[in-house]
Every structure is written in C-alpha cells, then in structure tokens.
C-alpha cells in the first residue's frame, strides 16, 4: 500500500512539473500570438516618416513618437465615425431581423409537416454550402433593381443570405423541444403568435444567443457583400473603409491607416472580453449543430 502511495506521489509530482513547464511554454507562445496586434499598436504611435518595411519592428522613440495625432488624422480623414455607425446599424438591424424572422420560420418548419416546409428546410441547408461568388453579380443587380442598396434596408439582403445558418440552428433546437408545453398553451387558448413569443422564444434563448453571435461575427466583418451592394462613394462600412484607403495605392499614409486598424479592433476585443463565455459557447453550439 505504501509503495503504491509513493508511486502515486512521485507521478503527481512529475505531472506537476510537466504542467508548470507547459504553462511557461504556453505563456511564451501567447506572447508571440498577440505580437501582430502589439506591432500595429506601436506603429500607429509613430510619425509617418518613421514607418517603413525596414523599421516596422522598432519601437517608437522620443524622435518618432507621434502620440495620438495619427488617430485624430485617421478618424477625420477616413470619415471613420460614419463608417462605424453604418457598420453598427447594419449589423444590429440585420441580426435582429435574422433572429426574429428565422426563428419564426424555423418554428413553422419544425411544427408543420408539409412538402413546402421540408423544401424550405433543405433549401436553407443547401444555401450554406453555396459560395458567395456564385451569386455576387446577380445579387448585386437584384438589390439595385429592388432599391435595397442603402445601409437602411441592406438587412433584407442579409436576412436572405444569412437565413440558411439561422434556420438550420433554430430548427435543430426546436425539433428537440417537448411538444407538451405548446399543446398545453394551445388548450389554454393561446394563439400561435402569442405562443411563439410567450412560450417558444423564451425556451430557445440559448440558441438565439449562439445564432446572434455567429451572425454578428459574419455581418460585422463582411466585406464583399456591402462593397457590391452599397454605393461606395456614399456609404462605407468599416471593412470597406479600410480596403478603400489601403487598397488605393500611391499616397497611402501608413500611420493613420494603422491607427484606424487599432480603433477597428478595440471594440471587437472589448466586446469579446466581456461576452467571452457566450461567444465561446455560441461557437461550440454552432459547430455541434453543423
């Protein structure tokens, strides 16, 4: 007995040492992992003339330190604030619309067993596989014809193209929900619309959060769809703004550019640090269903 205990103790001691080494190794890897972001931050604090490919890794010195001048210049020159607001508005309106319409549609699909509802379900799954390039030209033309080409109604396009994932996730969850609750509510005189908002929506809350997170990550960072649909001279989302100023070669000013990249990243990282639990759960839930 004593021998077994000794062995166990030795083993756990060895595991502890290995784990400690691993912790240190991982800490170093993590430093390397966030280095690219650190690099952008340091460069965004340098004056324009101190930025070149050769000196990218040098920290700003007293001579090359620019303070927040790049940030002010970048924000005013790139009209960053309006891009930010357009991005925010498009993301919020699209995600709210997607969640509302797709959860209703998914409930219908999971409760009504007709050919039409099955067809809708399989079409949604199909749409998830289709690459955007397949529809980009015709979608942009359709949006133009129907005048869906402003930030205020582009959410309808996002609903159409994002419906696949959302309907799929909601249907998966709703099919596993017990019917008894809904039947009881129906006997008590609940209309389908009341039932959906008072009974079904509260139960599907976890799926709603997961889906909202996945769709938000997509819409907020999407570049090609708004580029093709919106008039770039009038409206620019953040990814469009970055590409518009960086992509036009020649007189690109790198320092304000990097300042803008930093301001683009900051809200995302802050949001992530606060809602980390939900985001990670959302990703896992999305993957398990997928």
């Amino acid at each position: 007995m004593a021998v077994v205990n000794m062995e166990k103790k030795q083993e756990s001691k060895r595991t502890r040492i290995i784990n400690m080494i691993l912790s240190v190794v991982f800490a170093l890897i993590c430093l390397v992992y966030i280095y690219p972001i650190f690099l952008i931050v340091t460069n965004s604090l340098k004056i324009e003339s101190a930025i070149s490919t050769n000196t990218a890794f040098k920290l700003p010195t007293a001579d090359t330190f620019a303070g927040i001048a790049n940030y002010i210049y970048g924000v005013t020159k790139m009209d960053f604030l309006s891009s930010f607001l357009y991005s925010l508005f498009i993301t919020v309106s699209s995600v709210v619309l997607i969640i509302l319409c797709c959860s209703m549609c998914a409930w219908y699909i999971s409760r009504v067993n007709t050919l039409a509802s099955k067809a809708m379900y399989y079409l949604c799954i199909f749409s998830m596989v289709v690459p955007f390039q397949m529809v980009m030209f015709t979608l942009a033309k359709t949006a133009d014809t129907l005048k869906l080409n402003t930030p205020f109604n582009i959410c309808i396009i996002y609903l159409g193209f994002g419906a696949g994932l959302a309907v799929f996730m909601f249907t998966g969850f709703m099919k596993s929900m017990p019917l008894e609750i809904e039947e009881a509510a129906m006997i008590d005189g609940c209309s389908p619309i009341q039932m959906f908002f008072r009974v079904v929506m509260p139960i599907t809350k976890p799926t709603t959060i997961s889906t909202a997170i996945l769709e938000t990550m997509w819409v907020w960072n999407d570049y090609l769809l708004p580029t093709l649909v919106l008039d770039i001279k009038k409206y620019r989302t953040i990814p469009m703004d970055i590409q518009y100023f960086r992509g036009s070669y020649g007189s690109v000013q790198m320092a304000p550019m990097m300042a803008c990249i930093v301001i683009t990243i900051i809200p995302v990282i802050l949001l992530y640090l606060f809602c980390q639990k939900y985001i990670i759960e959302g990703v896992v839930a999305g993957a398990v269903k997928g």
Binding site: C105, S127, V135, L146, I157, F161, G164
Partner: peptide, 10 residues
C-alpha cells in the same frame, strides 16, 4: 418574410 428575403437574397 424569410421566404421573400431568401428568394431575393439567394
């Protein structure tokens, strides 16, 4: 609603 948007968007 979803069907209309899905038809337009996809």
């Amino acid at each position: 609603p979803t069907l209309i948007a899905f038809t337009i968007g996809f």
